[in-house]
Nucleic acid binder design. Structure first.
Lengths: 139, 139
DNA sequence: TACTAATTAGTTAGGGATTACCTAATAATA
DNA sequence: TATTATTAGGTAATCCCTAACTAATTAGTA
């Protein structure tokens, strides 16, 4: 019982290590070592809300519009987002993620994808199916 | 093949969700919603280096001693660390983690432990052994 | 219909609190 | 005299604000 737990702990630590190596890889590819938690959070919010404008982002994050302008200017300088003017209304600009911005916003997800690929390379078909059946049961 | 991947992705997302629920639980137990990444990093460094003094922590983190004094004062106010004067040398104080400080420094680890307990509750002995055998192969 | 008035979207200007660093000087101990 | 930690004073960046502004659009009215 206790031995099993120890085993599982080591195995999952290994998986987590692989995953964080992958996500570090993603971040260092973006060469943004001093990005802040807030900035990452803004990028995720932009990623999750399609067609987001300055006013809308201010609303979602419950900040003032000048705060959003400032934050977006910063993220533009970091090459994570850009402004796309609305075709139909000259007052409106949409905030879009660049490739780099999207990479950062989805780093967790992408790292997980890489871990799964590693997993699929290491195991045969039957083992993968077995793994799926077992882990499905965890709630 | 692609279906397996999709399955695995959903299953691991679920595990990660469980884990981050656990670690959020740990953090909210500590009632420290506005702790910074730097502060967490200092706590981890203190946890990993036994008998660490102000000078030593300055050396490890490559900061000046006044920076360390200030940071430790902040962490003391947050009840995450305390000073323990050295018995043999009145100039020296060791930096020790409080229960709360240790909780935060090891949140990841503790969350993983909770996930594994959940896993062991959901699976029988044979399944656990099978899981260990399969996941062992991932490198 | 055309023109003014009001509204809306985003920006600028100026400011404040906090974090996280620094050097120089100082106090206490070895 | 050397070492450990602290105090004093300062800087830069982040992340937030209000008030005032510009430009674009919409509504109201003559």
């Amino acid at each position: 019982m206790h031995e099993q737990k120890e085993h599982l702990f080591l195995i999952f630590e290994n998986l987590i290590r692989i995953k964080s190596e992958c996500s570090c890889g993603i971040f260092s590819e973006c060469t943004l070592s001093d990005i802040t938690l807030k900035q990452i959070h803004y990028l995720k919010t932009i990623d999750q809300n399609k067609e987001v404008t300055f006013s809308r982002l201010a609303e979602i994050t419950r900040n003032s519009k000048p705060t959003i302008t400032e934050m977006i200017n910063k993220l533009v300088r970091m090459e994570c987002v850009y402004r796309e003017p609305c075709q139909h209304d000259g007052r409106i600009a949409y905030i879009r993620l660049t490739g780099r911005g999207e990479m950062i916003a989805r780093a967790e997800q992408k790292a997980l994808e890489q871990v799964i690929e590693r997993l699929m390379d290491s195991l045969d078909d039957q083992e993968i199916n077995l793994l799926i059946e077992i882990l499905k049961k965890v709630r």
